[in-house]
Nucleic acid binder design. Structure first.
Lengths: 201, 201
DNA sequence: GTCTATAGGCAGATAGAC
DNA sequence: GTCTATCTGCCTATAGAC
């Protein structure tokens, strides 16, 4: 096998790990090769071997993040029986990201959207598209089963959920705590889950 | 009088106008003195005469924006009789900003929060604080008058509104149109305004 | 108030040795 | 794969003439 260390990823994925955290905390344009290199104890030139340019690094960052997010959504769909608990689990992802002092990677990149290379923009747009698709499916099934209730279409409800969660992460920073995301996640669930469908109350 | 041109602001406020638009579209860290100077047809050195450093420029940007926002809120409170229409007018501010291809200045700066000078962070935090205060007051009055209905506290509802609108602007960029903010603004109003309180339907 | 000129630093990126 | 060394360009900022 070509693996060098047991239990640790290769250099390429370690670069992505470090870069991802830096982007989520500081933004893509305020994350430099020098930052990553310093943290990893290697040189900038070594980074360029793995990712020729910043655009390639950024694109890999988004596609890996989107793939991992989709994996998490599949796990939620498999683990949780009813739609109401799947919605709770979905919101919990956002809460946990913020607790690690990070913004959603694609939420951060959405703010920087106008300055991103085209390949990254497409990957970011794709993330939100897939995200909405999954939510629309969840909402449709929940409505049919009677475990979720909402006005308007599943598409509109899905956009509200994404907007509220992404916005909650965004404004949590100046607030300096997680009260906004906690409150928003709680309100989304309590508004969409009918009283009879809740575990306690 | 010290005014140079009728109907036009002085250089200082013209700098702020240009810088503000650049920040709302590209972000504070991706807006440079060179960008502003080129657009105004003056040199970078002239900018430094009006604003010694970028931190001072940024702080002026936020405090002016926050003051103008408060003015708009006062106009809404004076013009619109009932709370339901004030909420509509509040949402309309966000929609109009996005239609000009801008993000909320403080929403953008919230994304860049970790990289901002301290003076700017405080000004941004203050914007959201004042914003929430105004909404809490609106929601409280609306609930008392019966023109607005919502679960939880006015504070929680206010945070949901801000998060949803800021998030809608954010994700609208990758979506490439205003469908998200339009949908979110519509949903917020229709959820908070009881059917009997609406003008038509 | 605005200019020219320039300093000093950091960005992304490349060449070539090992 | 990782290194040293270097390039070019842009950034914020300053000095001093006009």
């Amino acid at each position: 096998m070509a693996e060098q260390r047991t239990g640790a990823g290769d250099t390429r994925s370690e670069i992505l790990d470090v870069a991802e955290r830096l982007v989520q905390r500081r933004g893509f344009n305020d994350m430099s090769y020098a930052d990553i290199a310093a943290e990893m104890g290697i040189t900038k030139a070594a980074l360029h071997y793995h990712f020729p340019g910043k655009a390639e690094l950024g694109e890999s960052l988004v596609t890996r993040y989107a793939a991992r997010f989709q994996d998490a959504l599949r796990v939620i769909a498999a683990d949780q029986a009813d739609a109401a608990r799947q919605l709770e689990a979905y919101c919990a992802i956002y809460v946990s990201v913020l607790r690690d002092k990070r913004l959603c990677l694609c939420g951060m990149l959405a703010a920087e959207y106008n300055t991103l290379p085209l390949s990254m923009r497409e990957a970011v747009a794709n993330f939100f598209e897939e995200n909405e698709k999954w939510l629309v499916d969840l909402l449709s099934r929940g409505r049919s089963a009677g475990t979720l209730t909402f006005n308007d279409s599943p598409e509109q409800a899905a956009r509200m959920i994404v907007a509220a969660l992404e916005g909650a992460m965004l404004v949590s920073r100046p607030y300096g705590n997680t009260s906004v995301i906690d409150s928003v996640a709680g309100q989304l669930v309590s508004e969409l889950v009918p009283r009879t469908g809740r575990r306690r109350q």
